[in-house]
Design a binder for these strands. Structure first.
Lengths: 188, 188
DNA sequence: CTAAAAAATTGATGTAGGATAAGAAACTAT
DNA sequence: ATAGTTTCTTATCCTACATCAATTTTTTAG
């Protein structure tokens, strides 16, 4: 079951064992906080099922959603995780979820032992990088309505699982504005 | 000289040779376009000196600066580069520059031969990922004035080398707005 | 099934930053 | 040096989205 994560990669028995020993299965209930701010970010998480998000609370107390994650996505506070600083994001479970978590130190050891795994994560990182760069581009060049339409097209599976105010805070607008945008789209 | 890029990594003579053969030194003049849109993105570039930027031209014809690069930074249209699509960004030289360019296919071969190099690029990717995620966060949570102040603090070396309208298009505002913000800051 | 809480909508009003237009300042090249 | 070009500034007006304040609708818990 853990091996679904690495489908497409051929692994020896020994490698499989190692991986099965480093990933831990964990469950969270809707509303649970997987990671609070100002904690050490020791793990990243693979979503086996359910839905989570990471968000940032700005100095005015407003939430900004950075990332959603559903089945087969990975999630963490990657700012804290990669730069070895205390968490700046909160990871919240927004639909009951089963995750596989892996410790940063374990994964780095695995990189030494199984280069195929290091490559897998390098490529995953490259794909995320592309999507975050596209998001910066969209934020700079499109009005809220277009960003919302694109969001619904790009992440139809996510839209069904999350609240409107989660989407609004991802798009960088208020829940009231999103409501007006939705109304406008609906009447056509 | 090329090896400055990999300072901190110990390489054998053979590895050094391979690297010296795959990186090509190239010069560009201020105003030169290193990559146009809608081209195949075959290379990424290490800046030995000079200054470049990548920008996106939106459907209304407005430019949006995605990235600057000065000495010791890397630059490319990473959207096209990693996702194997035609370029969506333009790479422009904004101060006479000397670059080392490396072909994607060469670097991927190098990854097979020198795992230390794959690791170097993985870590570089992780650091970029962090900074782009911080930028998304800043764009979502700060007004233009604060984003500008942070920009000047974070990239003092870049500010001196680029035009105000480059900075404006990086911050997601017009050059007129940036002018007002600068005036406001100056009068205090 | 129902009360309470959470989420979404709607309306009225405010504001940061955009658009347009013009002029001033700073480079650039002869 | 000086004409031409590019960049920056300033002023006026405008718009997308925010804020505030009620409701209405939906979800949740007993």
């Amino acid at each position: 079951m853990i091996l679904e994560i690495f489908k497409g990669i051929t692994l020896t028995k020994q490698e499989t064992d190692r991986i099965e020993n480093t990933f831990k299965k964990v469950h969270f209930k809707k509303g649970d906080i997987v990671l609070h701010t100002n904690e050490t970010v020791t793990h990243q998480y693979y979503v086996y099922f359910g839905c989570l998000r990471t968000y940032f609370i700005d100095p005015q107390g407003k939430e900004h959603t950075i990332q959603f994650a559903i089945k087969d996505w990975w999630i963490s506070d990657y700012i804290g995780y990669f730069s070895e600083t205390k968490s700046v994001l909160t990871i919240e479970c927004i639909e009951d979820a089963t995750l596989f978590k892996i410790a940063k130190k374990d994964i780095e050891e695995t990189y030494d032992q199984i280069p195929k795994i290091e490559r897998f994560f390098r490529k995953k990182m490259e794909r995320s990088f592309v999507s975050f760069q596209k998001r910066i581009l969209a934020n700079l060049s499109q009005p809220a309505k277009e960003r919302y339409i694109n969001f619904t097209k790009t992440y139809p599976n996510i839209e069904q699982q999350v609240k409107n105010y989660h989407i609004a805070s991802y798009l960088g607008i208020t829940t009231e504005s999103l409501s007006r945008i939705r109304k406008e789209i609906a009447k056509k």
